[in-house]
Amino acid sequence: MPDNRREYALNAVLALGLLLVPLWAYWAGSPFTITVFTRIAIFALAAVGLNIALGLGGMVSFGHAVYFGVGGYVAGIAAQHAFNGETFLGIAGANQMLIIWPIAMIAAGLLAAVIGAFSLRTSGIFFIMITLAFAQMVYYFAISWPTYGGEDGLPIYVRNTFPGLNTMRPWNLFILCWCLLMLAIGAFALIRASRFGAALMAIRQNPDRVAAVGISPFGIKLAAFVISAMITGLAGALMADLSRFASPAAMAWTMSGELIVIIILGGTGRLFGPVAGAAVLVGFEVIFGGMTEHWRLWLGLVLLLTVLFARGGIVTLIAGRERLG
């Protein structure tokens, strides 16, 4: 665990800022601001998932968008069948978030178990390319399978429901996402502090030594990869409900790239790095996207300069390097 007061302070600012700005927007009557912050929370949640694989385990998965997309499709397909009364392989539809979330996580986890079992046989540059290729495979499957919308995606006509909350109200949906994000960050902290997390981080540094003391790197990495995908899948289900649309674009390779960008901009392996990174990326899109249609050019330049000259991301910039206590 990092013993760093400035990082604790920064984390508190990020967590409360993410809560208080939408609260202010709620009183000021600006649903657009709330929606922007809901997107930040969801992207941050997806990136918290990836941060387990990439930040702790050093597995550069360039295909995490596929779990994000699968989570979205679970929400979309469940809602469609709840709407039209048909079944998916004999399973009835559902429009309860409390049912959809675990299914989205299980679906993403199962897919990750299969993809991970193949990809984790390799490492380094092979692993990057293979995770990208498998994600592309699922993407092409989604756009060429006509039953659930194919290239057009799957609309969700009525947002899925949560007991006691009207999820059609932006603030209610936001607070659900914020709570889940905080829970996921808590889970990340617990994993990092656990024996499992210690083994995972040791594997990142030297898999041979870990194997020599009697721990199988493959099992640990696969477990971390699956947990990582489950969190990203949950974020995908939330995103589909936010945009009321399950889109194949959510699993496009650019989305995988953006998830990595969020982590790097925020700070690899840092607890609140994904929150900082998601805030910067979404903020960049909202602010510069309104000014010029070529905002991606500037995003590319900022990213390139960050990688070449300012390593460590925002959390490192403000709170300094991580201290291992």
Partner: peptide, 13 residues
């Protein structure tokens, strides 16, 4: 490789 992926991803943009 992570830095290479990111920098060349930025180049694509």
């Amino acid at each position: 490789h992570l830095d290479q992926v990111l920098a060349t991803f930025a180049l694509i943009l």
